[in-house]
Structure formats: structure tokens, C-alpha cells
Amino acid sequence: MRAPESLGGRVRAAVLAELPLLTGCLTDPDPFVRQAAIWLACVGTRPADPAVVRTLADLYESDPSALTRADALTAVACSIPATVRDREATAVGDHDREVRLAAALSGLDRAEPPYPAALVAVVAADGAAVPGSHRFTARPRPSRIPVRPATARTSS
């Protein structure tokens, strides 16, 4: 008799089954919705849908929200790590500290000691200044859902 799936496994399977319906949220005007959709796109272990990866790459390139850009970069790195190195190398010098930190953490995730000094320097400089900077673990598992501030609603 097969062992029952864990609750986490069942939740991941349910999210993956609905992911085609949820991908439209990646382009929602609300940055909190875009971030939540990015995190959902990282759930599970199946190969990433190429259309989703393209949308994530577009979000990294052009989203007005630094946190959304950072999460999109992390999601692309989790989905297809072999193709993200050049993007990360550029992102380490980005004008948004959230994006720099996401790029450094993604690069460090694949690195082995001794860690690249440039990536360690970004984490040392920007890590403490970015709230929630450790949202993704070594594997694409979001650790929290973005919570919209009760008094503010932005469209950036």
C-alpha cells in the first residue's frame, strides 16, 4: 500500500493543477497580486512552462515594483537556473537593492565555498536593509504570502 501524500504535497499538486488559470495574475495591475502569482509559479518540481518563464523574465526586465522584479528574477533562477547567470550578473549592479540582493542570493545558492566575494558584498551591504529578503529558500518554496498594507493600495 502506498503511503499517503503529505499535506504539503497535496497543496503543491492542487496549486500546480490550477496554475494555468493563475498565470494571468502575473500581469495583474496590483503588485501584491503579481508577487503572489510569482510565488505560486515556483511551487512544485515540474519543468516551468516556457510562457510563464517568458512572463517572469519580462517582469524582471520592466516591472515598476522593485520587489516584484526581485521575485521574478528569483523565480526565473529557480525555474531554469542554467539560463539565468548572465541576468544575475547584470542584476547584481541593479539600481534597486531588492533586485541586487535577489541576484546575489540566487548566485550564492548555486555557489560553493569559498563564495564569490562580489555576491557576499551585496548580501552584506543590502541584506539587512531589505525586509523579507529571505523569502525563497534554496529550492523554490515561498515562505510567506505578501500582505497588502491595510492603509495603502498602490499600483506601482
Rank of each mutant, 00 (worst) to 15 (best):
39 W>G: 15
13 A>T: 08
51 A>E: 14
4 P>N: 06
13 A>N: 07
78 C>V: 09
29 P>G: 06
1 M>P: 12
83 T>R: 14
8 G>N: 12
122 V>P: 02
94 D>I: 06
62 S>L: 08
133 S>T: 03
25 C>A: 14
111 A>Y: 02
3 A>F: 09
114 P>S: 10
50 P>H: 13
20 P>W: 01
156 S>P: 01
82 A>Y: 03
11 V>R: 13
44 G>L: 06
64 P>T: 00
62 S>K: 14
134 H>G: 12
27 T>K: 12
58 D>C: 06
14 A>C: 04
135 R>Q: 11
24 G>E: 09
124 A>L: 09
9 G>W: 01
140 P>N: 11
26 L>V: 08
93 G>T: 09
104 A>D: 02
111 A>S: 15
80 I>Q: 11
74 T>Y: 02
106 S>N: 04
117 A>T: 04
17 A>P: 02
29 P>S: 07
83 T>Q: 14
2 R>C: 04
116 P>T: 00
122 V>G: 07
97 R>N: 10
116 P>D: 06
79 S>E: 05
49 D>Q: 15
83 T>F: 05
48 A>H: 08
54 R>H: 12
105 L>Q: 10
50 P>T: 15
140 P>D: 13
32 F>A: 11
40 L>W: 11
31 P>W: 01
38 I>C: 06
152 A>L: 12
64 P>R: 09
75 A>P: 06
96 D>F: 12
80 I>G: 02
39 W>Y: 12
65 S>A: 14
54 R>E: 15
75 A>N: 10
4 P>M: 04
81 P>T: 03
139 R>H: 14
102 A>G: 15
103 A>S: 06
35 Q>A: 15
127 G>F: 08
54 R>K: 14
84 V>L: 14
82 A>K: 11
17 A>T: 08
84 V>Q: 14
131 P>E: 05
59 L>P: 00
63 D>V: 00
95 H>C: 02
89 A>N: 15
143 S>M: 13
44 G>F: 03
57 A>G: 15
109 D>M: 14
110 R>E: 13
118 A>I: 01
128 A>Q: 11
116 P>G: 09
86 D>Q: 13
55 T>H: 01
90 T>P: 01
74 T>R: 13
48 A>Y: 02
148 R>I: 07
19 L>C: 08
68 T>R: 01
71 D>G: 10
102 A>R: 10
97 R>Q: 15
117 A>L: 07
156 S>K: 08
25 C>H: 14
63 D>P: 04
68 T>N: 01
142 P>F: 12
105 L>N: 10
26 L>P: 01
25 C>F: 07
26 L>T: 06
77 A>R: 13
5 E>A: 14
21 L>V: 05
138 A>V: 04
56 L>I: 03
55 T>V: 13
96 D>I: 00
66 A>G: 15
130 V>D: 03
138 A>F: 04
150 A>V: 07
50 P>M: 12
120 V>H: 02
102 A>S: 15
96 D>Y: 10
104 A>T: 05
